[in-house]
């Protein structure tokens, strides 16, 4: 295994993790490298992602936020390095992935319900059980949607909610969301943050969310992963202490505002560098 120094750095900026022995690393990334053409996006990158937390990934434009989760989720091949999930490879891991573009990620030819149940079909679950598990998930999360509709008959937020449910139906141990709310209007974004937080509190699934909105990144996260310009380093892995469920009140809470300001100053420092 290579390059422990960067790992030590990660731990140093995340003191909360060190104090909490129960929080073991879920995803361990070691020596990750990736280039597009001649641009080095990641060079010998190390990171530990703790289990059962919601991690927001934030950083300058083009620093490789989405590339990081796409490599972890196997959508983009790595050039070098190793990514393990509690010691296992991706092929042995149940995971869910939510795309930014819900309109193109859902299947318009089947109902919202069948969209949510589709991953179970891929896993050869018999139809009756598919139905039962999908209904159980929707009931468990208290989602109020008419799932007999086709995706194109729903609002953007509803479609993204269906996408999230589709990712959750396999009871994933890890959930990836790539800028899931950036195509929604502000009102819908607020509503969806609340929904995602509720889902997270119910399932406690390790969640990695890429965001381009700092307020959203801090509001939703247990920890904000701040990346530098490429080649990306961990600029900070900032814990967000605010208690859940977080509400509109949290947004003006002094602690929350301070954390956000700190993230912003680190972000600006990284943007100005180079």
């Amino acid at each position: 295994m290579s390059a422990p120094p960067a790992r030590a750095q990660t731990a140093a900026v995340a003191p909360a993790a060190a104090g909490d022995a129960a929080k073991t690393a879920h995803v361990t990334i070691r020596g990750l490298s990736k280039s597009f053409d001649k641009t080095v996006i990641y060079d010998n990158f190390d990171l530990d992602i703790p289990r059962g937390e919601l991690i927001s990934v934030f950083g300058p434009n083009g620093c490789g936020k989405s590339t990081l989760i796409n490599m972890i989720a196997g959508l983009v091949p790595t050039d070098a390095g190793q990514i393990l999930f509690g010691g296992r490879k991706l092929a042995d891991v149940n995971f869910g992935y939510v795309f930014q573009n819900y309109r193109e990620a859902l299947f318009p030819w089947i109902s919202a319900f069948d969209n949510i149940a589709y991953p179970l079909k891929l896993k050869n679950v018999p139809p009756a059980e598919r139905r039962a598990r999908t209904e159980a998930l929707v009931a468990h999360l208290g989602i109020k949607l008419d799932l007999a509709l086709y995706p194109y008959q729903m609002s953007g937020g509803q479609q993204q909610l269906v996408s999230i449910l589709r990712a959750l139906v396999v009871e994933p141990e890890i959930l990836f969301l790539d800028e899931p709310f950036s195509a929604l209007d502000y009102e819908m974004t607020l509503f969806m943050r609340e929904q995602l937080q509720r889902i997270f509190l119910q399932t406690r699934t390790t969640t990695i969310l890429v965001s381009h909105d700092l307020e959203e990144a801090v509001f939703l996260a247990d920890r904000v992963l701040l990346l530098s310009r490429h080649p990306a380093r961990v600029a900070a892995f900032m814990p967000v202490a605010a208690a859940r469920p977080r509400t509109d009140v949290t947004l003006s809470d002094p602690d929350f505002v301070r954390t956000k300001a700190e993230c912003l100053s680190i972000f600006q420092r990284e943007v100005r560098r180079s």
Binding site: A73, G74, L75, Y97, F99, N101, E104, A105, L106, F107, W109, Y118, P119, L122, K123, R166
Partner: peptide, 26 residues
């Protein structure tokens, strides 16, 4: 065929044939 849709099927674990019949054809 929308690349995201093919990718979505792939990331959910669909085989090449599954992608062809469940996504590309439709």
């Amino acid at each position: 065929a929308r690349k995201t849709r093919l990718l979505a099927a792939k990331v959910m674990g669909a085989s090449r044939w599954r992608v062809l019949f469940d996504v590309m054809l439709l």
